[in-house]
Nucleic acid binder design. Structure first.
Lengths: 260, 260
DNA sequence: GGCATATTTTCCATATTGCGCGATCGATTG
DNA sequence: CAATCGATCGCGCAATATGGAAAATATGCC
C-alpha cells in the first residue's frame, strides 16, 4: 500500500491492478462494477479491458457485456504452476527460517511409505540426534508425520497408518496422547488442522520438541512439511514467535488462499 | 494476425505480449533473451518486467537475475480454473471415481503446449514422485495426451504434435506402438475415438498403466481429460470395470452423448 | 587478484500516447 | 413511448512511455 518502487509503467500498474482485482472475484463483473471497485474512471478500465480481451486474458460474455477472465489467463496460470516446484522453493528459504527461529529446520516429503527428510538446516544450538537426511519419520509420533496425517489424502497414508496403529495397540505406552482408534485419530487430525500446525513436546524423544506445518498445493493437499526442532517447550506453543514464523513461512509458500 | 482491433493501449498490448511470451517458455529467461525474442528494446522490457514484478505476476530469481512467472500468475490461473464449469463439475466427482476404481484419478486440460494436470486424486497404488499437479503430459506417449490427440481440433495441438513427431523420428525406440507418420497418427487417433478411450500399458512408464477418456463440450470437442492410473494391465482393458466406470463418469459430464 | 566482457539497471529529452470528459449508442424498465 | 442505466467512442491536452546510451553490476578469463 505504501509507495512502491518508482520504476515501472504507471498505466501498466493500473491495468494489472484491474487484472488482479478480477482474479480475486468469483465470477464475471460489469465494467462499471470493476471501475468502481478499482477507483478508476469507466473509460480507463474499458480501454484496459479491451487490451486484455485482445490478449485473451479477459473476455466479455454474450450480450450482457460482463467481463471475466479469459482462456489465456488459464494458460498463464498453469504455466506458472507447472514451473512451481514446492520442494525447491521451500528449501531455498529454509536457512533463513532456521536463522530467524534459532531452531533446526527440516523439510520432508511423503515418500517410501513415510515422511522422509529431504533437507536439513541446523541452527546455532547443536541438536544432536540420530536423524539425518533420508530418515523416515513415524506418522503418529512425530510432528512431521502428523502434518501428513492431518492434511494428506487418506489413501496414500493408509498402509502406514494401519501399521502404526497395530504397533500402538501392541505397545500403548509409546503413544501417550493418542489412542489407537479411528475416532481418536480423526479427532487428533481435526485438532491439528484447526490449529494449523502439529507438535510433539518431548514425550517421544525426551528433551526434544518440534512443531511442523504443511506446504499446501491448490487442492489443499500437503506437498511437503516444514518442521522446527528445538529443546524449549515454550517455543512450540501457539503464540511463540517461532511458531508464528513457521506458519508465515509455510503460508507464503502454499498456493491455497484460504487456510481453512 | 488479421484481428487487429485499434482499441486498447499500445503499451499494454506490448507488455502483455511479453507476458504471454514468458508463459510459453518452459523456464526462467534472462532479460535480454526476452527482449530479443519479443523484438523490443531491452530497457522497454525491463520496465515492463518491473511492473509485472511489483504486481507479483513475475519474479526474478536469486542472483541469476533471470525472470520467471510469479505467484500472482498462479492465482490468476486458479481463478480462471475455478470458473471453468467442466473442470468444476468433473473435479467434484473425482474422489468417488478414484475410490470406486481403486486407481489414481487425474483431471487435465490442454494448456502450456501439453495436457496439464489440474487435479490429482491419489489412491493406494504407488505414486510416481516425478509427476504432480501442473505436470504437462506428452501428447503421443501418455493416455491423457492421446485423448487430446484424438478429440482436440488440429490447430491447438499442431505445434506439440510436430515437435513430438520430430522426437519420435530421432528416437523410434521410445514409441513402440506408433510410427512417426501422419497416417499412423491418424489411424491411432481413429482407433481411440472408436474405442472411446485412450490407453498406455506400461511401455512408457514401466509398471504403470493408464486409461483416459474425454469430457466433451457441445461441439464434441475435448474440454478436459480424465485419466486413471494404476499397476494392473487388466484394469485398462475394454471390459474392465474400471474402464466402464471411467467411461460412464465422462459421459455423464460431457454435453454430447455421442462419441463419434 | 585484476582486467575484460556481457548483462542488467538507470537516466533523460522528446513526442507519442494514454487520460478525463462528455457525447453516442444500445438495452432494459416503468 | 419516455426514461434510465451502462457500454463504447471521439477529442484535445499534458502526462508519460519510449529508445538510446551511460552507469552499475555480475561473470569470465588470464
Amino acid at each position: 500500500m505504501a509507495e512502491e518502487n518508482g520504476s515501472g509503467l504507471k498505466s501498466l500498474q493500473a491495468a494489472l491492478g484491474v487484472l488482479t482485482f478480477m482474479a480475486r472475484q468469483s465470477g464475471p463483473l460489469t465494467l462499471s462494477e470493476i471501475a468502481r471497485n478499482c477507483g478508476m474512471p469507466v473509460s480507463k478500465v474499458h480501454r484496459y479491458l479491451a487490451s486484455f480481451t485482445q490478449a485473451g486474458l479477459a473476455r466479455q460474455e454474450g450480450r450482457s457485456g460482463r467481463y471475466d477472465l479469459g482462456p489465456e489467463a488459464m494458460q498463464l496460470g498453469l504455466a506458472a504452476l507447472a514451473r512451481n516446484d514446492f520442494v525447491n522453493r521451500t528449501a531455498d528459504g529454509l536457512p533463513d527460517l532456521a536463522l530467524d527461529t534459532s531452531m533446526t529446520a527440516l523439510l520432508s516429503v511423503w515418500a517410501n511409505e513415510g515422511a522422509t527428510v529431504v533437507r536439513w538446516e541446523r541452527s546455532v544450538s547443536p541438536t544432536v540426534t540420530s536423524m539425518g537426511l533420508g530418515t523416515t519419520l513415524p506418522l503418529l509420533t512425530s510432528a512431521t508425520g502428523r502434518v501428513f496425517l492431518a492434511w494428506s489424502q487418506k489413501a496414500p497414508i493408509q498402509a502406514t497408518l494401519d501399521s502404526e496403529l497395530r504397533r500402538a495397540a501392541r505397545n500403548p505406552a509409546l503413544f501417550p496422547d493418542v489412542a489407537p482408534t479411528r475416532a481418536s485419530i480423526a479427532r487428533l487430525s481435526g485438532e491439528i488442522r484447526e490449529r494449523g500446525y502439529a507438535t510433539v513436546d518431548g514425550q517421544y524423544i525426551p528433551g526434544l520438541v518440534a512443531a511442523a506445518a504443511p506446504i499446501l498445493d491448490w487442492q489443499g493437499e500437503v506437498q511437503a512439511a516444514v518442521t522446527l526442532v528445538g529443546v524449549d517447550p515454550a517455543s512450540v506453543l501457539p503464540n511463540a514467535p517461532q511458531v508464528q514464523a513457521l506458519l508465515a513461512f509455510c503460508r507464503g509458500r502454499s498456493v491455497v488462499r484460504e487456510i481453512a
